[in-house]
């Protein structure tokens, strides 16, 4: 049990790395879907499809490329995290009021400047909401990592199941639930603040 803080830390690190990567890729895909008309439906469809693949199957598939260990679970988390981020970024960017887009264009901003100075800032509350959903999902999905040799809170849960040790299962599961609740709450508060301003 004295390993618990380590498990928690490792679990967190895995989720945060995955989230960071997902945010970058997700916003990028969201922007492409917004900018490139013909790619729009394809991208939205793709991230939706990924979401429906069972996690065991996805991890097994990823293991072929990333081998055993943390990189595989991180890759898996990234793929699952994409959908809410991409979708919210796309909705946010397309939803920026047309007259503001016209104003930005009329002031002489290039497409990239419009994106960075106006469109992303204005859709940030929505994008952030997507990130919150991803983080909460990832915290629980990360438990699966133990099956492909990754660290984190999946280890005590798995060991508990194998040895039929309820106490051990709970020492893994409870921190996961608590972390999900705490993140959800804090990010929700921040999100409300963003929406208000």
């Amino acid at each position: 049990m004295n390993n618990l803080p380590n498990y928690i830390l490792e679990h967190l690190v895995i989720v945060l790395i995955a989230t960071a990567i997902a945010v970058v890729i997700g916003i990028l895909l969201g922007v492409i879907a917004y900018w490139v008309k013909w790619a729009e439906q394809a991208i939205l469809w793709l991230v939706e499809i990924i979401q429906t693949i069972p996690s065991l199957a996805l991890l097994a598939l990823l293991m072929i490329f990333f081998g055993l260990g943390n990189p595989t679970i991180i890759a898996g988390l990234v793929l699952y995290a994409l959908m809410p981020i991409v979708r919210n970024a796309h909705i946010g960017l397309t939803g920026v009021e047309n007259h503001l887009k016209d104003a930005a264009k009329g002031m002489g901003m290039s497409r990239l400047q419009r994106l960075v100075k106006v469109e992303i800032p204005l859709s940030f509350p929505l994008i952030f909401s997507g990130i919150r959903i991803s983080v909460v999902n990832s915290l629980s999905i990360a438990v699966m990592g133990v099956l492909i040799g990754a660290g984190g809170l999946g280890f005590p849960v798995y060991r508990g199941i194998q040895t039929n040790n309820m106490e051990m299962i709970l020492t893994g599961a409870i921190p996961v639930v608590l972390m999900a609740l705490v993140f959800d709450h804090l990010m929700n508060r921040f999100e409300k603040k963003l929406m208000r301003s």
Binding site: H99, D102, A103, K105, G106, M107, G108, K117, L122
Partner: peptide, 15 residues
């Protein structure tokens, strides 16, 4: 566009 000032119908200040 940078050489031409533009006031749009809906004001359009960046919030």
């Amino acid at each position: 566009r940078r050489k031409i000032g533009y006031v749009i119908q809906q004001i359009g200040l960046f919030p």
